[in-house]
Write a protein that binds this DNA or RNA. Structure first.
Length: 519
RNA sequence: UCCCCGAUAGCUCAAUGGUAGAGCGAGCGGCUGUUAACCGCUAGGUUGUAGGUUCGAGUCCUACUCGGGGAGCCA
């Protein structure tokens, strides 16, 4: 509608025009104001005479409160009784609040009646008990100011209708305006805060391990190179290779694939530490549970063995599940209803039952005796395939499992060598563990670390790694070495498990995956 | 990277090798203290890209691009 478009474009925003007018009581323009007294500086009082309330606070306010609300329109419904209902959402909670705008408002015909999903508005009025069903308070608006129009409702990418997750992924800048992705964002935040609170309450220190690392010390997976060399004409060595000696760090460097080796150094002085940061893998992985850039939580505990490690993992997961159910009850109810039926019961069941610890050797014998036929062979010494892990955690035990003591030959060099014959295993095993979750697979991978220098050196040698590259890691075993252990928890996989979201690309704001870096 | 499937209106999908349709969304109108409202009308398309077969291709063939599911790698 042309007239409307002109109105929208040419109309000064009410709050903007207010700003140019003389203000009562020396009020400063909204965005230049500082608040030294209030502990909460945002939201602050605005151009309006009433306090700006978050929707989550407005929904729980006393009837009769006068307030200003700011947010984005979810829906507008008109009643020819002479009023419109506006569902306003500001992200502070799952629910929207209903604003009732009567047609005697001066801008009703020109503006309010044309509001569409996505428009940004400020509304001022009194919070009253709703006359309608299924809601608590609503606002009787005395003023509705349009802050930002949607320029063309017909092509607005996220109107109020069902969308596929695949489509929303292509609208990553707008998808957080939907119920589902907004709920994911709040749950993700709650889980991140929960992680920090869990560790802080237990005297763990949060350690910032480097994101850029020297490549030789990691040895896990394909890495992203970090370089400032001219990509077209890099300096060459006499042998014709690229001369990384002239690169920024004077050597080749990469984005980290794990903070573990670094955090072990802090563990060897501070006893209980953890990292929580981004991690990068340049694997060409195209699955619903892999990202090229993901966040990982890696605790490391000193004077601890694998059993302590497994207990920590269990305690942490249960704490986080309980925490998110409590703090984001609104969003979790939504996930339970719309994304995964039974989700809340699933999480409660996990909280209430002890994790099943299962030695690898025993897992293999369960799989060998299973009536189910597997595509891949089950043999002691082979790594378990997805189908095997799924069978154990989803069908056989139907709960999270901690599989421990894997064959030495399929695990990393730093994992502690077990005594011969542990669990009756036919060959050497290491003190490794995987926590397997139904529907997700491996959510945690960890181990007790090899603290004996001679054994570590033997393992490095067996795997063809150069001792000198690990000189500082080896120093930890030379100076006051102690048994210690840790694990890595994939943060996005944790969110998947807590929300029921099936694709990992939908639980991180801007997913990075092969050929995916648009936003 | 491998296997399988897909790409048609803003979105989700139909359409025997022969005039491209529906639902949702959007706009307008009707009805209504509404609430994933309901009823009516209207607009909206180079059928992913490039080539080929054919009198004729959304449909068949080839390549490419992008997306999904599964596998591997792992968290």
């Amino acid at each position: 509608m042309e007239g409307l478009a002109n109105t929208a474009a040419g109309l000064p925003l009410a709050s903007a025009s207010d700003r140019s007018l003389p203000r009562p009581r020396g009020a400063l323009p909204l965005y230049h104001r500082t608040n030294h007294r209030s502990r909460e500086s945002y939201p602050m009082t605005t151009t309006a005479t009433s306090a700006w309330l978050k929707v989550k606070d407005a929904l729980g306010a006393s009837p009769g409160t006068t307030a200003t609300l700011k947010g984005w329109v979810r829906t507008r419904r008109d009643s020819k009784a002479g009023l419109s209902f506006i569902a306003l959402h500001d992200g502070t909670c799952h629910d929207a609040i209903q604003i009732v705008a009567k047609n005697d408002l001066p801008n009703y015909e020109a503006e309010i009646a044309h509001l569409t999903t996505g428009c940004a508005i400020e509304a001022e009025g009194e919070l009253v008990e709703s006359q309608g069903k299924g809601q608590g308070l609503e606002m009787q608006a005395s003023d509705v100011r349009v802050v930002g129009w949607v320029e063309d409702p017909d092509t607005y990418p996220v109107p109020m209708k069902r969308h596929t997750m695949e489509y929303l992924r292509e609208q990553a800048h707008l998808r957080v305006r939907t119920n589902t992705l907004g709920a994911v964002a709040r749950v993700r935040h709650a889980l991140a805060m929960g992680v920090h609170r869990f560790f802080d309450e237990r005297d763990f220190y949060y350690v910032h391990t480097p994101i850029i690392t020297g490549s030789d010390c990691e040895g896990a997976g394909e890495m992203f190179r970090v370089s400032t060399l001219d990509a077209v004409n890099p300096p060459k060595t006499p042998e014709g290779g690229i001369d990384y000696g002239q690169d920024f760090f004077g050597r080749d460097a990469n984005l980290t694939v794990s903070g573990q080796l670094n955090v072990e150094t802090y563990c060897s002085a501070l006893s209980r530490v953890y990292t929580f940061g981004p991690t990068f893998r340049a694997e060409n992985s195209n699955t619903s549970r892999h990202l090229a850039e993901f966040w990982m939580i890696e605790p490391e505990i000193a004077f601890a063995d694998l059993a302590d490690d497994a207990r920590l993992a269990e305690e942490m997961l249960k704490f986080l599940f309980d925490d998110v159910l409590t703090r984001r009850a609104d969003d979790m109810a939504f996930f339970d209803q719309r994304i995964e039926n039974g989700l809340i019961d699933k999480l409660r069941h996990v909280i209430d039952s002890p994790f099943r610890v299962l030695p690898y050797t025993e897992a293999i014998s369960i799989l060998k005796n299973a009536k189910k036929s597997f595509e891949y062979p089950v043999e002691w010494g082979l790594d378990m395939q997805s189908e095997h892990e799924r069978y154990l955690t989803e069908e056989y035990f139907k709960q999270p499992l901690v599989v421990i003591n894997y064959p030495k030959k399929i695990k990393a060099f730093y994992m502690r060598l077990n005594d011969e014959g542990t669990d009756g295993a036919p060959e050497p095993t290491v003190a490794a563990m995987d926590v397997l979750a139904p529907g997700i697979g491996e959510i945690i991978g960890g181990s007790q670390r090899e603290e004996r220098l001679d054994v570590l050196d033997m393992r490095l040698g067996e795997m063809g790694l150069n001792k000198d590259d690990y000189w500082w890691y080896r120093d930890l075993r030379r100076y006051g070495t102690v048994p210690h252990a840790g694990f890595g928890l994939g943060f996005e996989r944790l969110i998947q498990f807590c929300t029921g979201m099936q694709n990992i690309r939908d639980v991180i704001p801007f997913p990075r995956a092969p050929r995916q870096c648009e936003f």
